[in-house]
């Protein structure tokens, strides 16, 4: 009756507009990723859990095109899951986040994936993100990558604290959505061509394009 409307092009001069949702267990750093991406800052000592759902938007330029990302930040806690689920069907892309320093959050990724299959759009683009890669890891990068490959989705490790790979995670999603719809990416694919410099030790953080 009142779906999430994408009317942004009416109000703002943008060429494309997409809805991105950030999912994952609580305390995996979803809000921090968003704040890092949106404002380039790190929420130090952020103890406040997201209540229900939060929203930000970000305008990015891809070549000569303006793309607006409407980013929905969900609460990770179990009790908010049903609230968040009602937003799923409007999401074009999902960032599924776990905490590489927290095994449980990684183990729950499978649950999240089946949840997404059940409630999300069929053509939804998903990226698996292992966040907090500045912390001592418990989950090996290999495990993350294998899980992503099993499900045919790209994988990368990020750090909201240092900013590593954060922009690329979002940019990669935007490129895939545009490519899927229009067959090309204005200005060329940036997310894949950025040199992997900081992540030598990880070596896996390349965002593999979907096939």
């Amino acid at each position: 009756m009142h779906p999430v409307r994408k009317r942004s092009s009416i109000y703002q001069d943008v060429d494309f507009s997409y809805t991105v949702m950030i999912l994952g267990d609580s305390c995996t750093g979803k809000t921090c990723l968003l704040i890092r991406y949106k404002d380039g800052a790190f929420l130090n000592n952020n103890f406040i859990s997201t209540v229900g759902i939060d929203y930000r938007n970000k305008l990015i330029n891809m070549g000569d095109k303006k793309v607006k990302l409407q980013i929905w930040d969900t609460a990770g806690q179990e009790r908010f899951r049903s609230v968040a689920t009602s937003y799923y069907r409007d999401a074009d892309a999902l960032l599924l986040v776990y905490d590489i320093a927290n095994r449980q959050s990684f183990d729950n990724v499978r649950d999240w994936l089946s949840h997404i299959k059940e409630h999300g759009k069929e053509a939804v683009q998903v990226t698996l993100v292992g966040n907090k890669c500045d912390l001592p890891r418990v989950v090996q990068a290999d495990e993350g990558r294998r899980l992503a490959e099993e499900n045919g989705i790209p994988f990368m490790e990020t750090s909201a604290k240092t900013g590593q790979n954060v922009d690329r995670a979002f940019l990669g999603l935007a490129e895939r959505m545009i490519k899927m719809k229009y067959g090309f990416v204005p200005g060329g694919e940036m997310a894949d061509t950025i040199a992997v410099n900081e992540s030598k030790s990880i070596n896996l953080s390349n965002c593999c394009p979907i096939t």
């Binding site: 009756m1 009142h2 779906p3 999430v4 406040i48 997201t50 209540v51 229900g52 759902i53 939060d54 929203y55 609460a75 609230v83 009602s86 937003y87």
Partner: peptide, 20 residues
Amino acid sequence: GYGSDEGDNYMNMLIGMFIQ
């Protein structure tokens, strides 16, 4: 709000915002 799941997505955002 409206009293329907879809219509109330935005109401939930307002509530979340207030509580946050």
